[in-house]
Design a protein around this nucleic acid. Structure first.
Length: 563
RNA sequence: GCGCUUGUAGCUCAGUUGGAUAGAGCAACGGACUUCUAAUCCGUGUGCCGGGGGUUCGACUCCCUCCAGGCGCACCA
């Protein structure tokens, strides 16, 4: 039973309005003492040609009291509903305890496949903080859609192709040392790659050599392929360490190289549709009708480019997965590229182009470049994780030195802090990175939410097995009702997060829920309350912990049992 | 120059499709641990919602314009 829907039905039956329309219009009053739901009568005023005030008053008189609505009163042009608290509390908590981790899920996604492309690091390049933001965001998006019943597929579109691999092969053959590379593959490969660039400035024949090696790679020459595979595997092994830390498993690691033989078809399709045009020796698709700059398909030397690869990948994915939606979680800075590439798909007659969505993740900037990193001008993902876990361990040692599995807990909490920080605000803004913000564990922070959870868990543990059913009429305080109201809006919250492609909606939700529970926790005893009250409050606590776990889980944050 | 995006409290940010007195955290000050983990809670105040027009019963929200920051504008990805 959905209380909001029931109220909407009542309005619908009394006023000349569809239930759905009433649902849309209904809001939550700014002050809790004004009611639980509010229906604005301003739109009705036009149709009924009466003042909103009058309409609200008329309706208020006609609304009958029952186990849904306790009372309805007119205020200004609003009709404010006070729902039957006991009924609502009982219904909500029972539902949560019944459904467990399924609470807030839905069937809207049944039978629909959603692809989520994210992370996509470049082979032999370090995984920096920008990749981390992207990885964390994509992971949350995927989990949110999965919770709504969609069949989700996680794609890691590795940057494993391109002329830079010719350079890397050349560099490796000159200066590569397997022993050092085995130890620290990515940094060492990066080092020789950088050295190659330096040397190539002095000696341009190196670039010719690199081009040759890339040609070998394209032609499938065995030595080049073997080296490329080696670089790829070593890098992937490193990346996977981080994915394991964050508990992320991809369904596919087919990167750019996978599509290298699928691009001629794209060019053929575009030719057939007469979309290709020559411009300064290159082949482009004109996008003037979309008010966009042209999309480059073939370079003037006839080679393909990233747009070509993305087109090939999109077509391949549609054939392979027949997706309902294909989400590209990629940095905001590439917005134009995606607009162009989606427009080309549309021009080529693929009606599913509208199902492709670019989710632009925030750009990470530094507040103070000097303090940006201990090592150089980029911050590595590993550096951030290590720092957060270490800081967490320090705090545990000072606040709860006898805790078991300190390391394990520190990892969960520290990484939770990072995820929380990155998914705290909407993606429209840049993230200004500062160690201070990242390692603040008070107020609106991941550890704070986890702390609320852990305290609840601790109470449940101490209570042991409770016999008998809870009588929710014992939950009489305002603080308790506020928690339940919060609990009841979880499903809407998940749906909104999916609709907006914004995980921060969930972050705010768990924060508010934790806040409501903390307030209650601080002023009402649970274990020492009278038996009936205690049982009811324990059920409430269990429901809160349940929803916190689920909500945090959607963000990719794991909950420790104690901290 | 063009396009996208952001501008809300000292700082970091929320503000659902236009709605009631614009809200949180941090920072500052004061208070609450013999009581379920004080990484918590309670209290104190601050806003020409970037500026100016317009639309309407009503605008932080929609439209126009200007200002400021960020990002992007084909042979890198």
């Amino acid at each position: 039973m959905d209380f909001k829907l029931e109220v909407a039905k009542k309005i619908s039956s009394l006023a000349d309005m569809e239930t759905e329309k009433a649902m849309e219009l209904m809001e939550i009053p700014p002050q809790p003492n004004m009611g639980d739901y509010a229906f604005p009568c301003f739109q009705l005023a036009k149709v009924m040609r009466k003042s909103p005030n009058m309409i609200a008053k008329d309706l208020a008189e006609k609304i009958e009291r029952d186990d849904i609505v306790e009372k309805a009163e007119a205020a200004g042009g609003y009709l404010n509903f006070f729902i039957n608290k006991t009924g609502f509390i009982k219904h909500t908590i029972s539902q949560i305890l019944d459904q467990g981790s399924k609470y807030g899920s839905s069937k809207e996604g049944e039978g629909k496949t959603v692809l989520v492309e994210f992370s996509s690091p470049n082979i032999a390049k370090p995984f920096h903080i920008g990749h981390l933001v992207n990885t964390i965001t994509g992971n949350a998006i995927e989990k949110i859609f999965k919770h709504l019943g969609y069949n989700t597929i996680k794609l890691n579109h590795l940057g494993d192709y391109g002329t830079q691999f010719g350079k890397l092969i050349s560099a490796y053959k000159r200066w590569g040392n397997d022993e050092i590379i085995e130890k620290d593959p990515i940094n060492e490969l990066l080092k020789i790659y950088v050295k190659f660039h330096e040397e190539a400035e002095k000696d341009p024949t190196l670039d010719d050599e690199a081009r040759l090696y890339f040609k070998h790679l394209e032609d499938g020459e065995s030595e080049a392929i073997a080296l490329w595979q080696k670089f790829r595997e070593l890098s992937l092994k490193e990346f996977k360490k981080l994915y394991v830390d964050f508990n992320i498993e991809f369904d596919s690691y087919t990167g750019e190289s996978f599509y290298s033989d699928k691009m001629p078809e794209v060019v053929e399709i575009l030719k057939d549709k007469k979309l290709l045009k020559e411009s300064s020796g290159a082949q482009i698709v004109d996008l003037e009708q979309f008010n966009l700059p042209p999309c480059l398909i073939l370079k003037s030397d006839g080679a393909t480019i990233y747009a070509t690869r993305d087109l090939a990948a999109a077509i391949y994915r549609k054939r392979t997965y027949d997706f309902y939606k294909s989400l590209y979680v990629v940095g905001n800075t590439q917005a134009l590229h995606f607009k162009q590439f989606f427009s080309v798909l549309e021009l080529a007659g693929f009606e599913w182009a509208k199902d492709c969505v670019h989710i632009g993740t925030s750009l990470v900037k530094f507040a103070d470049r000097k303090l940006a990193s201990r090592k150089g001008d980029v911050i590595y993902a590993k550096e951030v994780v290590d720092e957060a876990v270490e800081k967490t361990l320090e705090i545990i040692n000072s606040k709860n030195p006898n805790l078991e599995n300190k390391e394990e807990v520190a990892k969960k909490v520290g990484m939770g802090a990072i995820i929380y920080t990155f998914l705290k605000n909407n993606m429209g803004r840049d993230i200004v990175f500062s160690w201070e913000d990242m390692l603040t564990f008070e107020g609106e922070s991941g550890p704070n939410v986890l702390y609320s959870y852990v305290r609840g868990k601790s109470i449940l543990k101490k209570a042991g097995n409770i016999s008998g059913n809870a009588d929710f009429s014992y939950l009489k305080t305002e603080d308790e009702f506020n928690i339940v109201k919060q609990l009841g809006s979880f499903k809407e919250t998940v749906e909104q997060a999916a609709e907006r492609y914004e995980p921060f909606v969930i972050t705010r939700y768990v924060t508010d829920l934790a806040k409501a529970y903390n307030k209650f926790y601080n002023s009402h005893p649970i274990l020492s309350a009278e038996e009936e009250v205690k049982i009811a409050r324990l059920a409430l606590t269990k429901a809160v912990c349940n929803v916190l776990t689920t909500g945090l889980g959607l963000l990719g944050i794991q909950t420790p049992e104690s901290m």
